[in-house]
Nucleic acid binder design. Structure first.
Lengths: 224, 224
DNA sequence: CGGAAACCTTAAATCTAACTTAAAAAGGTT
DNA sequence: AACCTTTTTAAGTTAGATTTAAGGTTTCCG
């Protein structure tokens, strides 16, 4: 699940990123409204957390512009003041939910879950390609020959591959989406996980393989 | 059974929370209408007790907004004045029941039971999975090898697992559903209860196990 | 052909969520 | 007040996930 966090208070932002990553979200953090809009345009997220008070462009304007473009991305607004005006404006302007600072971590997580639940239900919960299935709710990868419960990182990589079959995904893109922009991890880990996944795919007799394209990345393909 | 209590008189609120918790409800208390709406957004409750007279937003408005969102959550209204007008307004606006202050504890409990009965009836009173049974009225967990009368928290955890067999339930979700948002308890308690339940399951020779999926949660599964 | 870059594989090291137990604390009962 | 049950805390342990490291293999290009 990919989230964008737009919050200008660096300290809070960092704390939130840590918490969210801990809970298996892939998070990109931005620090002003314009940046937020930028990121929202280019990338595809499953939800956004928008602070209302931000430099360059406030959260409400970002939200308005986002909705004007016809996006129905779930949006959770954060507001420092518990003023009615802010709240009502937030809801009227198309936010799905709001939360007033300060808030408990638990509550934030609950809100995010509830906000993205609808989406999770809509987007098919089981990815298929050839004879393999990947269950997004149980992390189960299965085919004729059996099944495996994938670990977290394994699952995220497999999900990216299966959501975009036959599409090339570069090592950098894996790193960026799963480990995050500022990760210290060696590029090597991607290779390691590709190796693990291949082993599992062949163990369950999958009709698909992960093909490497030297210099450009990996893609999920029909077995030749 | 999770309830939200919205009542601005602190003393009354505290008393009610105590009573309700005594009667095995998980209760979150809020002290004004906006907060109530806030908490209700997460859709996590089995019923709400709403005082009509509250700061920031009165109970009737909260109710109206709740119904506008399409929620059919059972609502019990509290009103200080025994005026018919208030009552009628309450029922018209979609409340399931009302109670005028002051009221007897017994009556409150009866009303809550009746309010949530429909919900309780729909759900079967005995949960089954494999060779194990969980009786919702006696808290009895049984299988070939014997039976245990579960304690409250144990029961609630087991109930969540058995109501959603094979589905992953995260530690946070347990906390949220059973302990409530603002609980101070360590995440550790969940592990402790999982451990207790496992011990009991194996003692009665259950055909099911509680499987942990590191980083994502627990699920009830067929014993391999 | 030779060598360098890219990729692969495995095993070992590390890290941390999950487990277990015991005991304290809280609450209720006799 | 002694006793019992339930809930929570605390602390030491285990095991699975992740990362590192190191030695292979393949592909490309001069």
């Amino acid at each position: 699940m990919r989230l964008l966090l737009a919050e200008d208070e660096k300290e809070l932002s960092n704390a939130l990123v840590t918490i969210l990553k801990h809970n298996n979200y892939s998070v990109d953090a931005v620090y002003d409204g314009l940046e937020a809009l930028d990121y929202l345009q280019a990338e595809n997220y499953d939800g956004v957390i928008l602070d209302i008070m931000m430099p360059k462009m406030d959260g409400l304007t970002v939200l308005k512009k986002l909705r004007e473009k016809g996006s129905d991305l779930p949006v959770l607004m954060l507001t420092a003041k518990s003023e009615i005006d802010d709240r009502v404006m937030g809801l009227d302007s198309g936010a799905d939910d709001y939360l007033t600072k300060p808030f408990a971590t638990k509550e934030l997580l609950a809100r995010i879950r509830s906000m993205t639940r609808r989406q999770a239900e809509v987007t098919d919960n089981i990815l298929r390609y050839g004879n393999i299935k990947l269950d997004r709710s149980t992390y189960e990868l299965s085919a004729e020959g059996g099944s495996f419960r994938l670990a977290n990182k394994e699952f995220q990589m497999m999900e990216m591959l299966m959501a975009n079959p036959k599409i090339l995904i570069s090592t950098d893109r894996f790193m960026e989406k799963i480990w995050g922009y500022d990760s210290e991890a060696e590029i090597n880990v991607v290779w390691v996980y590709i190796s693990y996944l291949r082993k599992k795919l062949s163990a369950i007799n999958a009709s698909a393989i992960i093909k490497a394209s030297r210099g450009s990345g990996y893609s999920l393909e029909e077995k030749p």
